[in-house]
Design a binder for these strands. Structure first.
Lengths: 244, 244
DNA sequence: CGGCCAATTGACGGCTCTCAAATTCCGTGG
DNA sequence: CCACGGAATTTGAGAGCCGTCAATTGGCCG
């Protein structure tokens, strides 16, 4: 517990913590971050896996075997309805825990597709559940991670239900910007890994509308955008728009 | 385990199972349904609570103390963004587990408001987590219940992101109808407990649009609707619309 | 009986989608 | 290294749907 709180204060400073583990959602529970003592969850991490751009880690209909922690790279999570409707529900970055969508029935209901070549840590699910039986902290962290998924989904719901397209796009850009900041990159300038199509699907709009809104925001000097490259020019104005 | 599967086959037939517990999401884990042997989760249920129409069980900002199982009645779950946007994310019926929104941070992020006088079972959260430490089945069931919330949220997301207003309303009505059926009521005829405003908020539209869509569906002889009373006249056509 | 709130209906305007075309970028093969 | 083809992105014009504003109706409760 003590070590946990210390870590929260200065995660990037730990000399023995691999750089790629800095933002891991299992921070403090994984062996890679705790070389001094054995940890239950540590034994869950068996191996790593490389997925290339466009490949999927799992697909809707697959049986739940592993959860995954995205170690580097980025992905898109796509949910498909029985009638064939599709939507991107999330764009996870390094540190994110993937695969919780299968927890209800043991069958995945989403596709996880790599936006660029990405590295994953593999956590055999059965083993992980077993470990949580003996480790209260691990179990609670798993709960929190699941709950975070719900709340993030709810935020997106609010976005689709209550916001105009301008507000949604501004909100999306600010969200990426904050993620970049929390990962140690510049919040002012970054490269999007997803297509306009992906963004449109995520925000419940059409590609052309996404383009037009971005053009409008650029016209108003709030940001510069050229293809995948984004430069934010007026954070306050963007934040104001994204707040409704 | 054996008793569990028996129960699934014929839950309403158990003579010792109170009628209001028939659709409980804790079915098989709660003492009320298992008088023969002690069960870990059973000890979590301490007391019951009555909330009147319009009153809230918990509100955004409240500290997580209990989870609740809705024993009878119905509620609406409302999420509020920092900037004041509001949306109804769910209309739980009897048997639903409430309060999981607080799992991420220990603070509720939703309001749970009674649509009619309702009875709740109270589950002290700390005790429940402790019990899950010693009961693998209980822990997994809790996982499933949380995961169900995520997937339901995702379904609504698909609805808001990909469907027209007609499709969303048809989908909503069919969803209510199926819930009614699974609770032993007629799927063809039922009374809505929520206002048009609530429905509109849930589906990401305006009150007037909800009214107009319902009028359109009635015009097409798919259903009759008068105030809160709904009678479905063409299930197949409605299902077809709700599937896109 | 009166007042208030929920629900409904109509007219109108704006925003977003649809359809279409042009442009740019990227990877591949020559 | 250059040319080429396909995909992603951008921009334009027009139509349709949904939101806004306003007025009316209908129920419920005091």
């Amino acid at each position: 517990m003590d070590i946990l709180s210390t870590r929260v204060d200065s995660p990037p400073m730990q000399p023995h913590l691999p750089r790629e583990c800095e933002h891991c959602s299992l921070s403090g529970l994984c062996r890679a971050s705790r070389q001094d003592e054995p940890l239950p969850l540590a034994t869950s991490i068996r191996s790593r896996k490389l997925v290339h751009r466009g490949e999927s880690v799992y697909r809707a209909g697959d049986r739940l075997q592993n959860l995954y922690v995205l170690r580097s790279g980025s992905m898109k999570i796509r949910v498909t309805s029985p009638s064939g409707l599709e939507q991107i529900t999330d764009f996870p970055l390094a540190g994110a825990l993937l695969g919780l969508d299968a927890l209800e029935s043991g069958i995945h209901v989403c596709d996880a597709i790599a936006l660029e070549d990405s590295m994953l840590c593999i956590l055999p699910f059965a083993e992980l559940v077993g470990n949580c039986q003996h480790d209260l902290v691990a179990a609670q962290q798993l709960h929190r991670l699941i709950a975070r998924d719900i709340n993030q989904c709810r935020r997106l719901l609010l976005s689709l239900g209550c916001m105009t397209t301008d507000e949604r796009v501004a909100d999306f850009v600010m969200g990426i910007s904050e993620q970049m900041a929390s990962h140690g990159y510049s919040p002012r300038e970054f490269t999007l890994k997803m297509t306009r199509e992906d963004i449109a699907s995520h925000l419940g709009m059409k590609v052309e509308t996404v383009c037009r809104v971005l053009a409008r925001l650029q016209e108003a000097s709030l940001l510069n955008v050229s293809r995948r490259h984004v430069e934010i020019r007026n954070v306050d104005a963007l934040r104001k728009i994204s707040s409704g």
